[in-house]
């Protein structure tokens, strides 16, 4: 859970930085997408780097889901008779929604790849110019797409807040002081990633990026 999660968080950070290039301009953003495809050249042939990254991410996502599923099945087996009355004592919303939140994020990623990578669900679907695809995606008329992206990214924020805390704990964070730092890091990363990802659709929606 923790190891695959850390890989996914690293991807989220890099992907967010890449997305923010949209504020530099259409040429810079499109150039970035082309650069991604030639990363590692001349050592790696065209798009090889991207495929290696896709392989690593797929491995991480599958491993993450596999670990989560086995934990959920163990939890179900560990309490065969449910409580008639169950109070939420600690009540961390983020911790409680990890499993369903994860499912929502998975559905989002599938939609997102069909939208901006393969273009199947994108109104423009111009592979050479991802800038145009993004702008078309979040046009005010397609507010429902923006809404879905927003909800998905907020669930990612909650998922990260508990996920990062939990991963650091699993990897052996063991002091009170470290725990305070740990919670602050988890919250900070979640907020920064949410803000970074949300800035793009809202910039398009408000016409800042067009």
């Amino acid at each position: 859970m923790a190891v695959t999660g850390v890989l996914l968080v690293l991807f989220l950070v890099v992907h967010m930085l890449g997305n923010l290039k949209i504020f530099v301009g259409a040429a810079a953003f499109d150039h970035y997408a082309h650069w991604l495809r030639d990363l590692g050249s001349p050592l790696l042939p065209h798009t090889w780097y991207l495929w290696i990254q896709r392989a690593v991410l797929t491995f991480a996502v599958v491993g993450h889901i596999w670990a989560a599923t086995s934990l959920a099945l163990r939890a179900k087996a560990a309490r065969p008779v449910k409580y008639a009355h169950r109070a939420k004592v600690q009540g961390s919303y983020a911790a409680r929604t990890m499993r369903w939140g994860g499912v929502i994020i998975l559905l989002f990623v599938i939609y997102h790849i069909l939208d901006l990578t393969t273009g199947n669900l994108n109104p423009v679907a111009d592979k050479a110019h991802p800038y145009a695809n993004v702008v078309a995606d979040f046009a005010p008329g397609r507010w429902y797409v923006t809404l879905f992206y927003t909800l998905a990214i907020l669930s990612i924020g909650f998922h990260l807040r508990h996920g990062i805390f939990s991963a650091l704990r699993t990897l052996g964070q063991q002091t009170e002081k470290g725990q305070r730092r740990n919670r602050a890091i988890a919250l900070g990363v979640a907020v920064v990633l949410c803000a970074g990802y949300l800035s793009v659709p809202f910039a398009v929606l408000t016409g800042l990026v067009s």
Partner: peptide, 15 residues
């Protein structure tokens, strides 16, 4: 023994 796995939810320490 059939206990579940820990996900650091924190309900334990609260009670």
């Amino acid at each position: 023994a059939g206990f579940g796995g820990c996900t650091n939810a924190g309900e334990c320490t609260a009670v």
